[in-house]
Structures are given as C-alpha cells and as structure tokens.
Design a protein around this nucleic acid. Structure first.
Lengths: 139, 139
DNA sequence: GTACGTGCAAAGAATTTGCAGATAA
DNA sequence: TTATCTGCAAATTCTTTGCACGTAC
C-alpha cells in the first residue's frame, strides 16, 4: 500500500499524518496479524530507529479514539490492534495463540443487531476460543 | 446460596473445596457484578482476614481452567470474572463502566454456532460497547 | 512563535513467581 | 507422611505520566 493511500486513510479519520503515524498505520493495513504494541514496535524499529514505545502507545490510542483501528482484548495479556474495521469475528487458537479473522454472514449480523436494539451500541465484538484447522491436523 | 451447594458446584468442576475456594465461588455466584480480582479480594478480606491476593489469583486461574467461571476481557485494564457460565452477551457502558448481562435469543445463537462449524470452538464471547439505559436517561 | 508531536526516564498498576509455612488426606 | 494449598515478598510485565526537545505551519 502506497503512502498516499495511508495519508488519505488517516485524514479520513481526522488524524494528521506524521511520519510515525503513517508507518504504524501502513504496518497495520499491510499486516493483518492483530499485532500487539510490542510487535509493532519491534518490527518498525529497524525502519525508524528513533521510534519510541511511548509513541506507539500514543499513536494507537489516538487511532482507537478516532475509530481508525479495532482494539481486541481476546488475548488476556496484551491488547491487539486490527486495522481492518469492517464486521468480522475473531478466533483465538488455544494451541498456537494465533488470532484469525472469521467472516460474519448476515444471518448472524442481523439478529445480533436486533439484540442491541434497546441500548446505544457503538461497537460489537465476537470472540471464539478454540483450536484452528492447522493445530487440529497436527495433533 | 448455602455452602453445600457451592461445594457441589466446585466438585462438579473437579475442584477440591477449600475454605477460600468456597468463599470465592460463593461470592461469584451471589454477586453477578463481573468483579475484578481486586473487588473480590477487597470484599472478602473482612470475612477472611488472612486472605491474600495471590490466593485470589490462584483460585480464579484454577476456576477458569476448570471452566467453572467465564473470564471477561471486555475491560482493557482488568480481567473480570463471571460465575454464570450459560450463554449470554455482555454490554460495557462507556460512561459508567458497568458491565451488564444481555440475554441471547436462539435467533442469534443458532446462526452463530454455524459460523464456527469449521473450527473446534470451545467458547464464544460477545461484547457490546455502548451506553446503558441509565446513562442515556441521565444525559 | 505557537501548537503539536515525539521520545526518554520514571512512576504506576496488574500479574506472576519463588519459596516457606500451614493444612488436609 | 506426603501432597496440596496458602500467603508473603520480590520480581516482572504492561502501560501511563511528566517533561524537555523538535518540528511544522
């Protein structure tokens, strides 16, 4: 994904595009791995040697407040971030720890939306805990 | 809820009932407030003055491993525990921070169960983030 | 030049670990 | 007795805060 696209993506969400912010958002958009703060920091440090972890914290907090990313708490230890904000569920494999995207059909989304009808719902998250296909085959 | 019932509840889940374990489980069954470790500790300390926070951590980890409680990560700061393990969703109010139980209809559960069909799903959690009725009225 | 962004170091909070004493079968 | 359970203190990990320096408009 080229930098201009990332710039636009940030501006759409009301975020001024600094060099660090662009790099972090680009990382999230290109790596659909639901990374932790630490993974983002470690992977970007070789590219931006002056990067500090505080900046990664600040930036992701800002992205989250501007609804530019999803924050996943499916992992008890660390918050994980997802640059892909459309409707989808997440599966955490209890064996390998990987987090997978699970597409959601309308048959799920429609009744679910009705469930929240009596409240002011801003965000819905669905987490599955189980074993992924790969780990199932291997054992 | 009397102690014998709590004893049984623990034994059903393969947990030896010590005094501390019974107190903590009884607390969870009688207080459907999704408490944090700290809330449990603080509330039980007057009843069990020798209780240590380590024991509360140990005990809830054990309960969770034995599927005797649900662990909610809907709150980014602390894990919250729920002694009520049947199907229901949770709503976290962004204003007051309270976590509410939301009953789930079959129209939600059935298509949701089908979504996970290709995986080995052991647990499903649904989180709503929004504003509760009380806070909506007040503002 | 003023406001905003970044990054260091220190502080704070949540959780885990190591170990010794207590308890129960 | 022998396992297990408990609880203190220390260690570790994750996150936030305070502040000074840089940068951009």
């Amino acid at each position: 994904m080229n930098i201009k696209e990332v710039h636009n993506h940030l501006r759409i969400h009301g975020i001024k595009p600094s060099m660090q912010r662009v790099s972090i958002m680009q990382y999230l958009l290109e790596n659909r791995t639901h990374p932790t703060i630490d993974q983002i920091f470690t992977d970007l440090l070789p590219i931006i040697p002056t990067l500090s972890k505080t900046t990664v914290y600040n930036t992701l907090k800002l992205f989250y407040e501007q609804n530019a990313v999803l924050a996943l708490t499916i992992d008890e230890k660390n918050i994980r971030y997802d640059g892909y904000t459309s409707d989808h569920a997440h599966l955490k494999c209890k064996k390998c720890g990987m987090i997978y995207d699970i597409p959601l059909e309308k048959s799920v989304l429609t009744p679910l939306a009705q469930t929240g009808d009596n409240y002011t719902i801003e965000e819905t998250q669905i987490y599955f805990l189980g074993v992924c296909k790969k780990c199932n085959v291997e054992n």
